[in-house]
Amino acid sequence: MFERFTEPARRVVELALDESDRLGHGYLGAEHVLAGIAAHGGGPAARVLREAGLDAPAVLAGLDQLVSQGVLPHPQHGAAGLLGSLGVDVAAVRRAAEENFGRPAVDEAARRVSRRPWWRGRGPGWTPLCGKALAAKQAFYLASVAADALGHASVGPEHLLLGVLGDAEAPARWTRRTHRVAAQLGLPRQPGPHPARVLLSAHGLTIVALREMMLAELRAAST
């Protein structure tokens, strides 16, 4: 999925993961990606956000407020913490497994086990070796769709912003697996209002307006 991402876009994803860590979330959501774009600060996407009044501190404060409003979950005990309470060090287990079998094999095993179908004895949906659940997948997909529509070969932070806006406009439907993983991670059982949409409306912005600003910025850059 990340093959098409430019170097800045990969950096944005790293910063988004940091933000998810800071909030104590076990998943990576579109709202974390938005914070990642703002924190990265470079390129047209961050410029558009700054013009709209969403610089990095504003987004962080906004997300903290969403947590206190209950739109975003409070910090949770991650799997690492829970297993630590049983005396199991997940990081050490992963290190040992990677030493023996190599990283790709461990990732593949975690993927296969988490998605094991019912006729093989249904898998758990998510395992502690899977890393953060990728709730922003739809946003990443829409980012690459936006890049295609603009005729761009690679996906940069500006496309990620368009992807986040697209996800906020029409959030991905929850599948049965999404419900299971949400329950496992201790998240709400039903999808709530999209956090990015709530954050934007708290700043008096609409999705359509911000998308127009982003597209205008890209048009201005290309001419």
């Binding site: 309470s85 461990v106 975690a110 086990v113 502690p128």
Partner: peptide, 12 residues
């Protein structure tokens, strides 16, 4: 939750 995580880990 801890036991479920451990079981998933063992599965992998």
């Amino acid at each position: 939750a801890a036991v479920a995580s451990l079981r998933a880990l063992v599965d992998v």
